[in-house]
């Protein structure tokens, strides 16, 4: 194998020529939408388990209604992710989400 073969399949496949395709993909399933959505669903399920918690469940968790608290926290985190997505959507012109980075 020569050095030529080791190059990526073809430079044309780089993100530079695929922004439209990438952004469609990005909008289809931005990771923030998935995290946010999953956490909302989990927040509802676990929070409901907390609302209807029996004495046994609370006793097991050292007297803390852990399902309720975890459910509320997950709802909040899920809502934050969805809000972040709404406030800083992926720009359709760039292939990535530079302006959306938290750091």
């Amino acid at each position: 194998m020569t050095d030529n073969d080791t190059a990526p399949p073809s430079p044309q496949h780089d993100a530079s020529t695929e922004p439209a395709h990438k952004s469609k993909f990005g909008q289809l399933f931005d990771i923030r939408a998935i995290i946010g959505g999953l956490f909302l669903v989990y927040g509802v399920l676990i929070g409901a388990a907390g609302v209807f918690a029996g004495p046994q469940a609370i006793h097991k968790a050292e007297g803390v209604n852990i399902n309720l608290w975890t459910g509320i926290a997950m709802l909040l985190v899920g809502a934050l992710f969805l809000m972040w997505l709404k406030l800083r959507p992926l720009s359709p012109q760039t292939s990535g989400g530079e302006e959306t980075e938290p750091m």
Binding site: P8, H13, G26, L28
Partner: peptide
């Protein structure tokens, strides 16, 4: 996710290095 991702996998660079498109926090 896997099923949706499949629709975006077009080249071998996509398959192996995600087309080098992901932001740093991800």
């Amino acid at each position: 996710i896997a099923l949706v991702a499949k629709r975006s996998v077009n080249s071998s660079l996509d398959f192996f290095l995600s087309g080098r498109s992901l932001p740093a926090w991800v």
